[in-house]
Computed example of a mutant assay.
Amino acid sequence: MRGWLGGLFAAGGVLAVAAAWWGMWEGRSGGRMAVADLLDRPVVLGLTALALFLAASAVLRRSGRWAVALVGIGMLAVPACAPALFHGGRDRTVAHREAAPGGADRVLRVLHQGGFGMEAESQGWYVELEDGSGWSARRWLVYGQDGKWAGEGLFAAAGWDGPDRIVVTTDTGTRVYDVSGGAPVLLSATPA
């Protein structure tokens, strides 16, 4: 009975790690947004995996199989938490949301990421395109800017210029992206 219960805990830990990695993979530009929104939580899923592996090691310790569970803790649970240190976007808020003209299944989102202070160099701005609906919908990063000062390309605005074009304006110029194929393609960059 103990072996079965310990195996169940260990299998749950493996599933939590796999879910965390799948969520981070889909969280990249062009990934499926429904999966990313659900599973791109490496800290929560990594800590869940760690708890399940610890429970498995406690149950299996008496049956002599505890070493396997401890190796699983080190090899799977800790690396599942580590990418969260480098995986941005956790504190981003939606500053603007706008559907594409013409009723297309596309939405432009402008996200703001605050830093440790109110200074411009600690702020981030990201323009994303949500393309499609349901489980097949994709989220693309159109433009990203971390920590700029005035005169260095500080984000000003983003909006639609027709159903297939997005215009991003900074204090140093304008960029036009074509999104007719899903993935954004830079068409032009005009200095201010």
Rank of each mutant, 00 (worst) to 15 (best):
M1D: 14
M1E: 15
G3R: 13
G3M: 12
W4Y: 11
W4S: 11
W4N: 12
L5E: 13
L5P: 12
G7L: 08
G7Q: 09
L8G: 04
A11S: 12
G12E: 13
G13N: 00
G13V: 01
G13K: 00
G13D: 01
A16E: 03
V17Y: 05
A18Y: 08
G23S: 04
M24Q: 15
E26K: 02
G27R: 12
R32F: 09
R32P: 05
M33A: 13
V35Q: 11
A36P: 11
D37R: 14
D40W: 01
D40H: 02
D40Y: 01
R41P: 07
R41I: 11
P42T: 11
V43Q: 00
L45W: 00
L47Y: 15
T48V: 14
T48L: 09
L50M: 07
L50F: 06
L50S: 03
L52A: 07
A55Y: 02
A56T: 03
S57W: 05
A58C: 02
R62H: 09
S63I: 09
G64P: 01
A67S: 14
A69Y: 09
A69T: 07
G74I: 04
M75P: 01
A82D: 03
A82S: 04
A84G: 07
A84F: 06
A84Q: 08
L85W: 15
F86E: 12
H87Y: 09
G89N: 00
R90Y: 11
R90C: 09
D91G: 02
D91W: 06
V94L: 07
V94C: 08
H96R: 15
H96M: 11
E98M: 01
E98S: 13
A99Y: 06
A100Q: 07
P101M: 10
G102K: 10
A104V: 05
V107D: 14
V107F: 12
L111G: 14
G117T: 15
E119D: 12
E121V: 12
G124Y: 09
Y126A: 03
S136E: 09
A137I: 02
L141K: 07
G144V: 07
G144Q: 10
D146F: 11
K148V: 04
K148F: 04
W149M: 06
G151K: 05
G151L: 04
G151S: 03
E152A: 10
E152Q: 15
A156L: 04
A157P: 04
G159Q: 11
D161T: 10
T170F: 04
G173V: 02
R175E: 08
Y177W: 10
S180H: 10
G182D: 00
S188T: 07
A189Y: 06
P191I: 07
P191N: 03
